[in-house]
Nucleic acid binder design. Structure first.
Length: 579
RNA sequence: GCGCCUGUAGCUCAGCUGGAUAGAGCAACUGCCUUCUAAGCAGUGGGUCAGGAGUUCGAAUCUCUUCAGGCGCGCCA
């Protein structure tokens, strides 16, 4: 029906006196036909007259009355009204209005999918936490968000590849390795342990696992020889000493620890129902000392193109183009590359893989980093508009009304795994996604477990479970009853109208969620739909209706259930059939 | 100092590519379980959308500004 209206509107607009192509295109781009926000405004609404009025400097109400007459004239609608400041409200014939039920029961899990993305190739890089310890609750939010937008973009017609960038090279990994060795050798070295080493329990656990396969021979004297006071310098010196004292063990422990931690991260993500198509190792970019490595070739290219230059013994990238406050170092004066240099090479690699769009999901503390990456994309001959950086703000956890402390210093923190064990993966995902990603989130653990209406997660699940149970009872009582929506279609039963109206909005919600990269829109939609379901359920006793009505109602409620299920699936949450 | 995010009912938040009377839940007060799951429903009260100025036929929504809070600003990663 929307197509019919769309066609009529275009006809109407081109018939307006003195309209030129430019204005026409502007109107066509801006106006919308939407499901009305309330049934008393009819089924469909368009704002086209107000858009046209502002562009053409005309009177919106006059346009509305003219368009209203045109639409009424074609006889395809039960009623057309011009209302308010210039809206057109359209009431469909009942058969058209109720056709959504049939559509959903036919399309099932495909209902809501679209071709909005037109088959573009999108890469989403998210989580990418350093493999130096378990994922914590901050990472969980990025994981839930990246995975959800992946599902939503996929459902709206894009090809999505989800990737985790593993920082398996560099100083952090050296510190990890040193931490494991020091814990392992603690008896021989009088429990010497630098302040800046990693202290978590998992460090000792890794040590215990590797203990059987390795013999370490360190003594405190040679290890702590010429150790500086400064904590940063201290850890670096310890690393250097460990490497020179026993490089064989160093490499062994390093490889083992890295493998252990990456495995544990994969496990955590797995129980969180987040899966990646690709794990990209920073180490695969190679080393600056290797002539042909990706990191060397990307820096060489930047130099050759005059984008990178030498100053004060370091190699810098000119980042002026993106408005960054200063140029950034790629290679330090000591010859080592920066983290940024790896990232430049990594993004060059991404570009070469031919994505139409790159989405990076980063912790909000990285926002100062955006401009330099944008600049590097331009410097590499790509376009910075290809990159969309979505920042995810930190989540504060609250338990028993108190903020849960998350200090990584002491090595004690609330991990993602702890959270999942506490409230379950689905509830955790739900609450992570319940607010826009770039805003601070207060995550109330007690609420997530509570059994009140305030807990929207269960409120929505409850709606789903109620329908499932009703369907089962209906099938048990009337095993031979077929599918039939006649009594709803013919208006002999109209108690479900609000539900029908709401489920017909769903495809628009998914599209809006995809184009704005905001999964939380789906959550609020599902809450509203569930509210209508609970209200209907309370006021109407389905199983005491006539068989004719029951058949139609069950069809209608099945489509509501389908929509709830589809919506939850886009968020990576499994619907519950029983509670 | 610069950058990003935020300020909507007592509390937690929706609504923000401008549109029809600003919405939920909680808390307070009233009702509804001998019938399909009360983890539910119905109702009442509660708002200068932080303050100010501007753009517009129309601003919670856009611009500027003030105030308040959070975070970030390395040749760290």
């Amino acid at each position: 029906m929307i197509e019919v209206i769309d066609k009529e509107i275009k006809k109407f607009l081109s018939s307006i006196d003195n309209i030129n192509k430019e204005n026409l295109d502007a109107i066509l781009q801006k106006f919308s036909i939407t499901i009305s926000d309330n049934l008393n405004k009819g089924h469909l609404t368009t704002n086209v007259c107000m858009i046209a009025a502002s562009i053409l400097k005309a009177n919106p109400n006059e346009l509305a009355i003219n368009l209203k007459n045109k639409l009424q004239g074609i006889g395809a609608f039960e009623d057309v009204q011009a209302a308010g400041p210039g809206f057109i409200n359209i009431t469909l014939y009942r058969k058209d209005f109720t056709s959504t039920i049939k559509t959903i029961n036919e399309e099932k899990e495909s209902y809501g999918k679209s071709n909005l993305g037109k088959g573009q190739k999108i890469q989403i890089e998210f989580v990418s936490a350093n493999p130096t310890g378990p994922l914590h609750v901050g990472h969980g939010r990025g994981a839930a968000y990246g995975d959800a937008i992946g599902r939503i973009l996929q459902a709206t017609g894009s090809f999505v590849e989800k990737e985790y960038y593993v920082n398996d090279a560099g100083r952090q990994i050296d510190i990890l390795t040193a931490s494991v060795i020091l814990k392992l050798a603690k008896k021989d070295i009088n429990n010497y342990f630098p302040e800046n080493a990693y202290k978590g329990k998992y460090i000792e656990e890794i040590g215990t696992k590797i203990n059987k396969t390795i013999k370490l021979k360190y003594d405190v004297k040679s290890l702590t020889k010429s150790i500086p006071k400064d904590p940063e310098e201290e850890i670096d010196q310890v690393i250097a000493n460990l490497k020179s004292l026993d490089n064989e063990s160093w490499v062994l422990v390093k490889d083992f620890s890295l493998k252990e931690i990456v495995e544990s991260i994969k496990n955590d993500l797995n129980i969180f129902n987040v899966d990646f198509d690709n794990w990209f190792n920073e180490s695969s970019l190679g080393d600056i000392n290797q002539e042909s490595s990706e990191i060397s070739s990307s820096i060489n290219k930047l130099k050759a193109d005059g984008q990178a230059y030498e100053k004060d013994g370091a190699i810098w990238l000119n980042t002026d183009i993106s408005g960054d406050d200063k140029h950034r170092v790629l290679i330090r004066d000591n010859g080592r590359t920066t983290y940024f240099a790896s990232d430049v090479a990594y993004h060059k690699n991404k570009i070469e893989r031919g994505f139409d769009k790159l989405i990076n999901v980063w912790g909000a503390d990285h926002h100062g980093y955006i401009k330099r990456i944008e600049a590097s994309l331009e410097a590499l001959g790509s376009n910075r508009n290809k990159l969309i950086v979505k920042l995810v703000q930190f989540a504060n956890l609250f338990k028993d009304g108190e903020k849960v402390k998350m200090s990584t210093r002491s090595g004690e923190f609330f991990t993602l795994k702890d959270l999942i064990e506490d409230i379950g993966a689905d509830a955790a995902r739900f609450y992570y996604l319940s607010k826009q990603a770039d805003q601070h989130l207060d995550f109330d653990l007690d609420l997530a477990k509570s059994d009140s209406k305030e807990n929207i997660f269960y409120y929505i699940q409850y709606a789903h479970a109620r329908i499932v149970s009703l369907e089962e009872k209906f099938v048990a009582n009337y095993p031979s009853a077929g599918k039939d929506v006649k009594s709803i279609e013919s208006n002999s039963y109209n108690e479900c109208d609000k539900l029908i109206h709401e489920i017909s909005r769903y495809p628009d919600v998914v599209k809006k969620s995809a184009s704005s990269l905001q999964p939380h829109l789906i959550i609020y939609y599902l809450r509203d739909l569930s509210q209508l379901l609970h209200s209907y359920y309370n006021d109407n006793h389905v199983l005491s209706e006539s068989e004719e009505n029951m058949k139609a109602i069950v069809q209608c409620l099945s489509s509501v259930r389908q929509v709830i299920s589809n919506g939850l699936n886009l968020l990576g949450i499994s619907p519950m059939n029983k509670m």
